[in-house]
């Protein structure tokens, strides 16, 4: 399985990353090597093996009581924001 430039473009779009043409070609080559490397797994017999998503052996995920534990700290939380106005985060226009 070899990665072509179209795949790089698609992945860049999913990843929200951009590359110039040289960068794209470099990424393509490195991704190809990595994909070749990880494709080694295909030789492992995994029939009837359950995929392991986590190593935690709890009976169920933790659940929280439905109790408000948070107060308003808007100003503090927004202090790192690139742009705010009237308590809103200001972002490039969202088109629906």
């Amino acid at each position: 399985m070899s990665i072509d430039i179209q795949t790089v473009n698609k992945l860049a779009n999913l990843s929200k990353l951009e590359f110039d043409d040289t960068g794209k070609e470099e990424v393509r080559q490195k991704l190809n090597k990595i994909v070749e490397f990880i494709s080694q797994l295909q030789e492992v017999d995994t029939e009837n093996i359950e995929p392991m998503a986590s190593t935690v052996h709890a009976t169920s995920t933790r659940e929280r009581e439905d109790k408000v534990t948070e107060e308003n700290h808007r100003d503090e939380f927004m202090a790192n924001a690139p742009q705010t106005e009237m308590g809103f985060f200001v972002v490039p226009r969202v088109v629906e």
Partner: peptide, 11 residues
């Protein structure tokens, strides 16, 4: 890839 890797992880 992903499911396969999780199976290998189990092994």
């Amino acid at each position: 890839y992903y499911t396969k890797a999780q199976k290998v992880r189990a092994l």
